[in-house]
Amino acid sequence: MKFGVVIFPGSNCDRDCVHVAQTVSGNKVESLWHKETSLPRLDCLIIPGGFSYGDYLRPGAIAHFSPIMPEVKAFAERGGLVLGICNGFQILVETGLLPGALMRNVSLKFICDRVTLEIENNKLPFTCRYPAHSLVSMPIAHMEGNYFADSETLKRIEDNNQVVFRYHGDNPNGSLHSIAGVCNEKGNVLGMMPHPERVAETLLGGQDGRLLFESII
């Protein structure tokens, strides 16, 4: 199992993702600079969190046109696993690999908190080790995590079980249907606002995110 982690100028969760993917998979993980125009052989690509291009214009809007992105799209279209976390999720919606958009939090505040999530779909390569509808605890840290999709898209993704994670209890950011993570139709591209890589070791406050990486391998 081989992971790749894409680094944009302004990414800041890339080292955490490399560390966790390495620890869990025991394999070499490649960091990929956004200027790359070809990908090595990989099984899973992680688009990490951070503030790519300073979030200028809109989060993810400029990263979408980085040289590596056509390769990321081609990889996803071939069925490769792509996981976007936080800013990575924002990038994936901007590219159109995932439906919807992420808007400013309803509170207009940056939220750094811990939330409870319900696993809505555990049939995916990313979530298959989580028990159905289990509750997990993960941190969130974002300004634009308010998920939006038009009513038609919302119905479609709900009907297709593309809502993978939902905030349980309080909805921290105003997301429609309390959506915290969605996948594409085929289920090989997942985007989520919470940070599983930050809760993959007991030493750092929990293991609820580790199962996600263990599901992938």
């Binding site: 809007a61 939006f148 999709a149």
Partner: peptide, 8 residues
């Protein structure tokens, strides 16, 4: 393409 996200 870039200046607006036409989803929203």
């Amino acid at each position: 393409k870039l200046l607006a996200n036409t989803t929203i």
